[in-house]
Amino acid sequence: MIPLVKIVDVEKVYKTGAVTFAALRGVSLDIADGDFVAVMGPSGSGKSTLLHLMGGLDRPTAGRVEVKGVVLSALDETALAKFRRAHIGFIFQFFNLIDNLTIQANVELPALLQGGRDRKAVRRRADALLERLGILDQASKHPWELSGGQQQRVAIARALINQPTLLLADEPTGNLDSVSGQDVLRILQEFNAQGQTILMVTHDAAAAAQAKQVIFIRDGRLVEAMPGRDAQQIAQSLAALTGT
């Protein structure tokens, strides 16, 4: 079976003046369609870099990133942007909603960018998502009028409006209280249960435990992989990795 995401010998080196920093060193990884993968590791280990490469936000220094059979590094800026809007959904730690757009407009934005000429259909899709996430009554408000948890739900709705091939979540619970965090994880699990492929970067073992698979990364290398579900085991592995 062809994996949905295929990462082959990927290296990523950042250069700042005379200083070079290897964020990823020969990472190879396959993610199957419908999988829910959590990426864990200490700060600076390269987990966000991995997420950026998979999302086509950055290009590898060496190696290959394929999503749904498309080699991302072969695409130019415009093609990459179009690929992102069609196939990738992003959720960020700080929500990154557009302040002066309403919740409705924020959610509809990627669909309109994708060329959703039928505005009524776009509206129906947005409303359905907002309703499912329990925030339809907030649709006419602005992001700053909502709580953190509500804002993250909006971000999830925005990420899912185009029914992406891959949903990338970078510390989605990192800026939320525990109740809201649990809430967000439950939503992600629900979508995954319906077939949505998810890759989530997190520091939180409890959050990682919601994934089907957890991979650990240190100094730019994949060092361990294990099934999710067991938060205690994940926490121990993370502690061993970070030496705490």
Partner: peptide, 11 residues
């Protein structure tokens, strides 16, 4: 940055 992430092309 966010808009580009969501798929804004350079033009």
């Amino acid at each position: 940055g966010v808009l580009k992430t969501l798929g804004f092309i350079p033009s």
